Each structure stands twice: as C-alpha cells, then as structure tokens.
Computed example of a mutant assay.
Amino acid sequence: MNIKIQQADPHSSESQLLVEKLSAELAVITGDNGKSHFNAQELNNEHSLWVLARDEAGNAVGCGALRPLAKHIAEVKRMYSDRSVPGVGAALLEHLETWAKSMGYREIRLSTRVINSRAVAFYHRCGYAQIQNYEPYVGRNASICFAKML
C-alpha cells in the first residue's frame, strides 16, 4: 500500500476528524483525551509541522505534528493512525524525523502514557529510548517520555 505524507492545515475538517478519533481512543485507553497538552495554534510558526497521511485513494488515515521544545529539540504531538493501512505510523514518524533533521533539530522527544502499551512498543521499535520525564510530564507517573537523536 502506498502512503503519502503531506503538510496540511491542522484546522481542516480532515485533520480535526483524525484528532477527535485520537482523543476518543486515548480516553478509552488512558482515561484522558490528551487535549490539554496540545493546541494547534502552537503550530503557527516555521519551526512546526502538521502532516496528514493519505492512502492510495487520498483518504486521510493518520496525522502527526512537530513543534519546538528547545532550540535543537522538537516534540512529536498528536501522532495517530486509524490502522486502516499498515505502516502509517512508521511512515508518519519517518517523515517527521526527516523534516526535523532538515530544520536543524538534533533530537526528537515525545510523551505517551505508560498504559498505552501499543504506543510504547511502537516507539521502542522505531528507535526511541526512554528518558526522564520532561516538563510538563515531570512527576506524572502515568506518563513515559522518549527521545531519539537525529
């Protein structure tokens, strides 16, 4: 299956639909929809990116964002695949990593919930190592943070 990743408007109806699906899944898995740690307005600068993954028919089947965390560190936010097409998550993450490297980022970080075992295993498979929780996740035992050097 051919997956196309392209920059998109985080406020578009397709983007919002995927974000709502992600929030609903997170609420079921973790008891929290994750919305409090992401604001699409944070993507309104040249050092941030919002992308959609599309299947062969052009349907939006996944999304993801990068935003600056520090000068040379980007953070992955709102990564989601509806799992209708195998490989969407890996394609999204690879695209985000490539873009981050081209923008001068040297490291990517992210946070997920410990209970979200599917996400934890995915990030391990993609070469991310667990790190100490960074702000705003410090002291939150339900969160697990990861990083990958680019």
Score class of each variant (00 low, 15 high):
residue 16 Q to G: 10
residue 30 T to P: 06
residue 147 A to I: 05
residue 94 E to F: 11
residue 30 T to F: 11
residue 147 A to Q: 08
residue 48 S to E: 03
residue 114 V to M: 08
residue 100 A to N: 09
residue 27 A to W: 01
residue 127 G to F: 13
residue 86 P to G: 05
residue 30 T to C: 14
residue 124 H to Q: 10
residue 113 R to Y: 15
residue 7 Q to H: 08
residue 85 V to D: 02
residue 146 F to N: 03
residue 91 A to S: 06
residue 3 I to Y: 03
residue 59 N to F: 03
residue 58 G to M: 14
residue 112 T to C: 14
residue 101 K to D: 09
residue 34 G to I: 07
residue 104 G to E: 02
residue 48 S to T: 03
residue 56 E to L: 04
residue 69 L to V: 01
residue 88 V to Y: 09
residue 21 K to S: 01
residue 45 N to S: 11
residue 90 A to K: 09
residue 19 V to E: 13
residue 84 S to Q: 12
residue 119 A to C: 04
residue 10 P to L: 11
residue 85 V to G: 02
residue 27 A to G: 14
residue 34 G to M: 04
residue 106 R to T: 12
residue 76 V to E: 00
residue 16 Q to S: 15
residue 46 E to S: 13
residue 113 R to I: 01
residue 114 V to Q: 14
residue 147 A to W: 01
residue 56 E to G: 06
residue 1 M to E: 06
residue 18 L to G: 07
residue 79 M to H: 05
residue 143 S to E: 01
residue 125 R to C: 05
residue 108 I to C: 09
residue 146 F to K: 03
residue 76 V to C: 05
residue 51 V to P: 13
residue 30 T to I: 11
residue 74 A to D: 03
residue 148 K to W: 02
residue 44 N to A: 15
residue 96 L to T: 01
residue 118 R to I: 10
residue 110 L to N: 10
residue 39 N to V: 08
residue 36 S to Q: 11
residue 82 D to I: 00
residue 61 V to Y: 02
residue 59 N to G: 06
residue 90 A to F: 07
residue 106 R to E: 15
residue 36 S to H: 05
residue 39 N to F: 13
residue 76 V to L: 10
residue 41 Q to H: 13
residue 18 L to S: 08
residue 126 C to W: 02
residue 59 N to L: 08
residue 150 L to R: 04
residue 94 E to I: 10
residue 29 I to K: 02
residue 8 A to E: 07
residue 64 G to V: 01
residue 144 I to W: 06
residue 75 E to A: 15
residue 107 E to S: 12
residue 83 R to M: 05
residue 42 E to G: 11
residue 121 A to T: 11
residue 18 L to N: 10
residue 8 A to H: 12
residue 130 Q to M: 04
residue 69 L to C: 07
residue 103 M to Q: 15
residue 107 E to K: 15
residue 95 H to A: 15
residue 120 V to P: 06
residue 134 Y to H: 07
residue 60 A to H: 10
residue 96 L to Y: 05
residue 120 V to D: 02
residue 39 N to W: 07
residue 84 S to R: 11
residue 145 C to T: 02
residue 108 I to R: 00
residue 93 L to D: 12
residue 55 D to S: 06
residue 109 R to S: 13
residue 88 V to D: 10
residue 56 E to W: 05
residue 48 S to D: 03
residue 81 S to P: 14
residue 1 M to K: 07
residue 101 K to V: 12
residue 3 I to E: 01
residue 10 P to M: 08
residue 27 A to D: 10
residue 115 I to F: 01
residue 58 G to Q: 09
residue 118 R to Y: 03
residue 20 E to R: 09
residue 21 K to T: 00
residue 3 I to Q: 01
residue 111 S to G: 15
residue 33 N to L: 05
residue 92 L to K: 01
residue 7 Q to P: 11
residue 44 N to Y: 06
residue 59 N to Q: 14
residue 118 R to L: 06
residue 83 R to H: 09
residue 147 A to C: 13
residue 44 N to I: 01
residue 92 L to E: 02
residue 144 I to N: 09
residue 10 P to D: 04
residue 86 P to T: 08
residue 86 P to Y: 07
residue 109 R to C: 14
residue 142 A to P: 00
residue 15 S to Q: 04
residue 9 D to S: 08
residue 11 H to S: 12
residue 138 V to E: 14
residue 110 L to C: 04
residue 86 P to N: 11
residue 34 G to A: 12
residue 132 Q to N: 09
residue 45 N to V: 00
residue 102 S to A: 15
residue 131 I to Q: 06
residue 105 Y to K: 06
residue 66 L to F: 04
